[in-house]
């Protein structure tokens, strides 16, 4: 790829105390791409995202965003550069309204001035949230909360939006809608790094993907290549 990558992860190693779970993961995400990390439970996908977000310090390796080394930077500094994670389990503020949750997404100085324009964009993408903007976030269904969490991520003018299992616990119909929304977001020039267990769905919308197993990158390719790979079909799609 000739374009300079937006995000470069190079030889990343992460440990929880003495227990090392990531043993050298490398991948790149180019501007405007949808890139997915796929792998079984315990492969280190969530840990990788947490390391990029600054929530876990890497033991070794580099995390570069626009060429700047972010490894070991605290979370709020990473957020300020436009690297935003939609957390697994949605972590909204249940006793605050939908609109307050969204506005908090625009707290970083780079986004604060544009909060009200961004709010309009989020409501255009998720009309449901507009109708419920005065409702307490904790009183919505799981799918609605997921939309709210994604909307909150968009409020921060993200350059790189990272999703950790966004389809977790959603009804099948909502999963389709969710993947359609992610594609819509990518069309608005937001680069996406997607961690998912719904491999077939994910490879449909991803430009490129990496297969992680036991903390290492074992395979990579375009979405199409991975869909057609015998290894992926056998291990992840159950079709080979």
């Amino acid at each position: 790829m000739s374009v300079r990558p937006l995000l470069e992860v190079d030889g990343l190693e992460v440990a929880y105390g003495d227990v090392q779970v990531i043993w050298g993961i490398s991948f790149t995400v180019a501007p405007g791409e949808i890139v997915t990390l796929i792998g079984p439970n315990g492969a280190g996908k969530t840990t990788t995202l947490r390391a990029i977000s600054g929530l876990l310090p890497p033991k070794a390796g580099k995390i570069r965003f626009r060429g700047e080394d972010l490894s070991g930077r605290p979370a709020h500094e990473v957020v300020r550069r436009g690297v935003i994670q939609i957390p697994e389990g949605r972590k909204l503020w249940p006793r605050m309204t939908v609109e307050e949750n969204l506005l908090l997404g625009a707290f970083a100085p780079r986004a604060r001035g544009l909060a009200h324009e961004q709010l309009g964009r989020v409501y255009a993408l998720f009309p449901l949230l507009k109708g419920r903007r005065r409702q307490l976030a904790g009183t919505m269904s799981g799918g609605e909360q997921q939309m709210c969490a994604i909307g909150r991520g968009l409020m921060s003018e993200p350059e790189l939006l990272m999703f950790d299992e966004p389809s977790l616990g959603l009804a099948p119909l909502l999963v389709d809608e969710l993947f359609a929304k992610i594609t819509d977001i990518a069309k608005q020039n937001v680069t996406i790094l997607l961690v998912e267990q719904k491999v077939a769905h994910t490879l449909e919308i991803a430009d490129r993907g990496y297969i992680l197993e036991t903390g290492r990158t074992v395979l990579s390719g375009t979405g199409k290549e991975l869909r057609e790979s015998e290894y992926v079909q056998r291990s992840y799609l159950g079709t080979g």
Binding site: S53, L55, A75, H76, V79, R80, Q85, P87, K91, L92, W93, P94, R95, M96, E100, L103, L104, G105, A106, F107, A108, R112, A115, R152, S156
Partner: peptide, 23 residues
């Protein structure tokens, strides 16, 4: 103000607040 909103977010869930760039 956004400051007050962030303070309430800290009260409700400090870790979630840190995730969106609140210090």
């Amino acid at each position: 103000s956004p400051f007050g909103l962030a303070l309430r977010a800290i009260r409700e869930d400090q870790d979630a607040a840190a995730d969106v760039g609140v210090h």
